[in-house]
Amino acid sequence: MLELISLLLRGIQPLLVPICFVGAWLIIVLVLWSLWTATRDSITTAKKMHNIPCPGCQFFTNDYRLKCTVHPSIANTEEAIHCCDFQAKTNSLMY
C-alpha cells in the first residue's frame, strides 16, 4: 500500500509545478476581478446616492427622528430622487 502511494506521488510530481503555477495565477486574477467589480459597484451606488435631492430641500430637517416633514418614509432613499414635493432651500433669513 505504501509503495502504491509512493509510486503515485512520483507520477504526479512533474505535474505539481505547472498546476500550482496556474492555480496561483488563477487566485490572483480572481482577487483582482473581485476588487474591480466591488469598486465598480461602489461607484455606481455612490453616483446614484448623489442624485438624492433631500439635503437641498426646504422640507428636509436633518434630524434623524424626522428627516422630512412631507415624506418621512422616503427621505434620503432612492425613491426620493424624483420627489414631486421638492422645493429648493432659500438662503434668506427670516426674523
Rank of each mutant, 00 (worst) to 15 (best):
Q58P: 03
K67I: 00
T77Y: 01
L9I: 09
P14C: 06
H82W: 04
T37N: 07
P72F: 00
L93I: 05
I28E: 11
I43A: 04
I81Y: 07
I81A: 10
C54W: 02
F21E: 13
C83K: 08
W25K: 12
L26S: 07
W33G: 09
L7C: 06
L30W: 06
G56V: 07
K47T: 05
M49N: 07
V31T: 04
P72I: 00
V31N: 03
A24L: 15
N76V: 00
T37D: 08
P18M: 09
N91P: 05
E3N: 03
C54H: 07
A24T: 15
T90N: 09
G11F: 14
W36H: 04
D41M: 14
L30Y: 13
G23H: 10
R40Q: 10
L30C: 08
V17T: 15
V70M: 00
R65K: 11
I43M: 11
E3P: 02
S34P: 04
R40V: 05
D41Y: 04
C57A: 12
G56N: 14
Y95S: 13
C57Y: 06
I43Q: 08
I74S: 08
I74N: 10
D63N: 02
V29K: 05
I12K: 03
K67T: 01
I74F: 05
R65H: 03
E79I: 01
Y95I: 15
V31I: 12
A75C: 06
V70W: 00
C57P: 08
L26P: 02
T69I: 02
F59N: 07
I19K: 09
G56H: 14
P55W: 09
H50L: 13
L7Q: 11
G23F: 06
L66H: 01
S92F: 04
H71C: 04
H71Y: 14
K47R: 07
H50K: 08
L2V: 03
A88T: 10
I43V: 14
N51R: 14
I19N: 08
V22A: 09
A24Q: 12
S73M: 02
V22I: 14
S6C: 13
